[in-house]
């Protein structure tokens, strides 16, 4: 905006905005801080912002007590795998909806979203039994499938909103230039939609990474990702704040860092076409 703002006004707004933002961020900050404290200073009253006895011991302890690399790797495989598989299925669907819309396209989209409204707890038992029977229980491929299907409506919706911004004439030009439908999608649509596909990918990796219901109920050991890792650290271990904080930090750090770096693309994707 080309209006003039007095420095004083700007200072007030800056102070207010930073105060609010720091309040929102504080719990994350406090967790990370606590993870470097000793158990004694972690529960000190009044709470200490800085202590003299910084330590990495909590991380060492958590690392030695559990198989963090396996949990981590499972998280990566499951979230990235389900997202890529989802994209593969969703791109053609979104192409259809965006470029060959019919009278029922909106209804179809809404129906897809409504499948997400079914409470997971309601279908827990059948899902558990199906996974047991088909041998998918506690396997990565099983979770990849489950999370892909869970997030597919979101992926289709996001891609649909991006594709709709691409002028249909360009795809027609490709058709005139002799491109088959497959080539049209591979050489023209997909490269043009890369920013949209990237933010769709990011959001879905985050959603899959943070999913905690199916990942906990459909795994025991082999395929358990970080959400199961953190669940195992809560209650039964007793209240060791510093170690709990270290484990929490280890569970959220990868996605937090990924999110910070890709914040711009992600926020664009988050709008679900809400902003033109």
């Amino acid at each position: 905006m080309a209006r003039t703002v007095t420095p004083r006004r700007k200072l007030y707004f800056t102070l207010a905005a930073w105060t609010v933002a720091l309040l929102i961020f504080f719990p994350v900050f406090w967790t990370i801080l606590t993870s470097f404290k000793t158990e004694v200073s972690a529960v000190a009253s009044p709470p200490q912002l800085f202590t003299a006895d910084w330590t990495l011991e909590n991380y060492a302890e958590v690392w030695s007590r559990s198989d963090y690399p396996r949990f981590f790797w499972n998280s990566v495989v499951i979230s990235v795998g389900s997202t890529l598989l989802g994209l593969l299925i969703a791109i053609p669907a979104a192409w259809s909806m965006a470029f060959v819309p019919g009278n029922r396209t909106k209804d179809l989209l809404m129906w897809m979203l409504s499948t997400k409204m079914m409470p997971a707890a309601a279908v827990l038992i059948p899902m558990y039994l199906i996974f047991q029977k088909t041998g998918l229980f506690d396997t990565r491929i099983g979770l990849v499938l489950a999370l892909m299907l869970m997030n597919l409506p979101v992926i289709v919706w996001m891609l649909y909103t991006y594709f709709k911004e691409i002028p249909g004439e360009i795809l027609e030009a490709a058709r005139m230039d002799g491109a088959s439908l497959r080539n049209e999608i591979i050489y023209v649509l997909t490269p043009m939609a890369i920013p949209g596909i990237a933010s769709t990918m990011l959001l879905n990796i985050i959603l899959a990474w943070n999913e905690a219901f199916w990942t906990i109920t459909l795994t025991t050991v082999d395929a358990a990702p970080l959400s199961a890792f953190i669940a195992s650290f809560s209650a039964p271990q007793g209240l060791f704040y510093a170690k709990l904080s270290a484990a929490s930090t280890m569970a959220i750090a990868p996605i937090l860092i990924l999110g910070w770096f890709s914040q711009k693309q992600l926020v664009r994707g988050l709008t679900f076409g809400a902003v033109k």
Binding site: V28, N210, G259
Partner: peptide, 16 residues
């Protein structure tokens, strides 16, 4: 800063 809580998985958020 503002977006950060969105990256925290629900069990961790609850336990914090």
């Amino acid at each position: 800063l503002v977006i950060s809580p969105f990256f925290v998985m629900p069990p961790v958020a609850a336990s914090i």
